[in-house]
Design a protein around this nucleic acid. Structure first.
Lengths: 129, 129, 129, 129
DNA sequence: GTGGTCTAGACCACG
DNA sequence: GTGGTCTAGACCACA
């Protein structure tokens, strides 16, 4: 495993997706799961880049997207902090889940699976869905 | 909607993904769903390109990937035909479904949803999974 | 097996190579192996095409190449006949073998195999070479 | 000879085969022979294209096939690198050799040569097989 | 800078 | 007619 822990968050990067997207997803996921507390400071771009051994531009892009989503805010001269707005976090978590579900159902539908077949596959996968 | 029907298959292209991948996915879907019969000829590269208003090279790339997957065979000078091997189609359909499921569960998991929460969301979405 | 016997020669066609080349190879091979006698008549282009369920142009092209090699001769109004020159057959057989050997050694060499490794692989393949 | 050395690899292109296939074969050979170390970067698409005086798209096609075979991985924005998985290289080298052997034996067999004749020809060719 | 996608258009081999 | 290769050149996303 190529895992790194930075600022209390766990990162595992691969080449299958853009790096900035993986960083974004993994920070967002840490927030959604509550692994990192609201209002807490996250590592600086430079620290994060060094820890993950990736280009600072890549981290920067991920951070910018987090801020656009309202999940973080930068305080000049102090760094980047997780939002303190729990409702915002809840909404974003829900929105991401909904998107994933829609995409999933669309894909399975396009392969001609009925809802009950989907359920069967999910069950066989260990989810008790 | 910008839909086109070609050779009994429905196509709707957008810019969110590579065109060749969309063509690939949609032909594959048609095969997986059985909308197009085994052994049947699919439209020639040029026909398809003209119908979808895209470049023949782009269609060709999709067709070559289909052949690599074993879903089609090309007969020189005659065209491109769906495989007659039903087992191969079944396997690929299953593989695609499995990939979608894995991706879905990973994403929802990374957002901190438990299996039963996932099931609840799916139910609310109209699937009775 | 998708085999057809025509004029005493065995044919099995697939899509991995040009059809005309397969026809050419298989006729040549029948001659080289002595499965078809010198001076004998081979089926007409039309007969052959019908038997193999391929385009007459494809058969024609194979026959033309055979004639260019001197393995056959056409007698106007009578058809196509295997040469009666045994020496020519011997030479062509040897030339084809030599080409195959050269190509084979070149390929294995390009993969960095030593002669003794090649010999080992050949032995493991059932040839006692 | 129209040879070019690029990134420690030797290239000689002709018109007997598709260019992208020749590039593919020659890079693959270099990897199989260990002429280029695992994990090493190979020349960028543009560099290679310029050096070989062919179109970047042609090089790209070769590189994509290498990646599909698992012999290389591409790091976005950084370039294309030889895999670090020695086992994968070993397997592919063996697979290529096996294919060559099978093809060779089939061809010689179709010309009616017995295994011992094949062995004799090989010996006379300088291999001591 | 890197790889990746797409286009337009030429040319070839095969059937 | 079919698929396949190649080019030139544009444009994009990523690091």
């Amino acid at each position: 495993m190529n895992e790194v822990i930075v600022g209390g968050m766990r990162f595992a990067l691969d080449l299958s997706q853009p790096l900035y997207e993986q960083v974004l997803d993994q920070v967002r996921s840490s927030i959604a799961k509550g692994e990192i507390a609201l209002g807490e400071k996250i590592p600086s771009v430079r620290e994060m880049a060094q820890a993950l051994k990736i280009n600072p531009n890549t981290v920067m892009r991920a951070y910018q997207e987090l801020e656009r989503d309202g999940l973080t805010e930068t305080r000049r001269g102090q760094g980047t902090f997780i939002t303190t707005d729990a409702e915002k976090v809840r909404l974003i978590r829900y929105r991401l889940a909904e998107e994933a579900v829609d995409e999933f159902l669309a894909k399975l539908g396009s392969l001609g699976f009925t809802p009950s077949e989907v359920a069967a596959i999910l069950r066989s996968k260990g989810g008790e869905a």
